[in-house]
Design a protein around this nucleic acid. Sequence first.
DNA 1: AAATCGGGGCC
DNA 2: GGCCCAGATTT
Length: 371
Amino acid sequence: MDSQLFVRDLLAWYETDKRDLPWRKDADPYRVWVSEVMLQQTRVDTVIPYFERFMDLFPTVAALANASEGDVVKAWEGLGYYSRVRNLQQAVREVSERYNGIVPDSFEAMTSLRGVGPYTAGAVLSIAYGKPLAAVDGNVLRVISRLHKIEEDIAKPATKKQVEAYVSRIVPHDQASAFNQALMELGALVCTARTPRCESCPVARHCVARAAGCQARLPVKAAKKPARREHYAVLLLRRQDGSLAVLQRPDKGLLRGLWQLPMVAVEDAVASPDEIRQQVQGCLADYGIAESLEVGGVYTHAFTHLHWTLRVVRTDLLDGATGGDWIFSDAMDRAQMTFGRIFQIILQQWASDPESRPERKGGEQLALFHD
DNA sequence: AAATCGGGGCC
DNA sequence: GGCCCAGATTT
């Protein structure tokens, strides 16, 4: 195929059909960088409101470098992959100190920064500085695998390297920004994962998979193993002054450093209230808590590699009660803390009506069966 | 090379 | 319920 013609057709389409996105208003390296980190494994529609808010709060390298980590993570709350924002702030602080606040313009300097891998470095440097580098994300892998009918597993590093090498060869040196964004835009709008819109594709005439009629089964990707399952009772422990027990997760691993409600592992979170009450009571006895436990609804929360089934359990404590690693906080405190999404959901429901019996998420009747 | 790390939207 | 998303880091 003629790569020159492909590039020309792609760029012509991008000029007329590109979306108007907040981070495309200018090419400020810092804004581009923040957008690229937010967009890692995250859809455009999800990112937009977070991006606007984040740029209002931390409009410059200096603003983010000087902010407290707590405020920065709070601004990220709900976006997921929280190490992204901790790494981003660490990297921005390094830019502030070592590079006088100027985002470096070399691939080596960029990739040496925390949280900046080959994709993000290529994207920031091409979009903000016009450097003719590849920026291969999931969209580009899919587009190129179809374009060239690549049948190897795109999850393999070797396949990604092959695609990076190809894109590096064809990226036009005077339009690297538009070209890289055009490849991704095509993947997001036309060459989508399911049912690609080949009829309206501006580069369909260059596509080998399309010619062979196999575009729907590309790219090839190995199946991943099923997520681990864990069951917990989530505790709403309320003191008479209205405060609630919360605790901070360990400084490593899942949701590290974020706040959560106390949880105790149970055999089966969908078991009968009596069964749940018995198991939870056994754990809380260590803290001298023997009040009556009210067993509420079931929540499920899916992480990429982990699936939680949760059962809400509520009780009132005597003032002065302490236990475990938890502290008692009021609504004002909690507004400053960063919680994992599932705890936000449970807490919001609690805040809206602390007296209500927590219902099953979605309001369906509680089903007493294993998942 | 494989596992870890979030959450939402779509089918 | 599984899959995918403007991936990077750790093991």
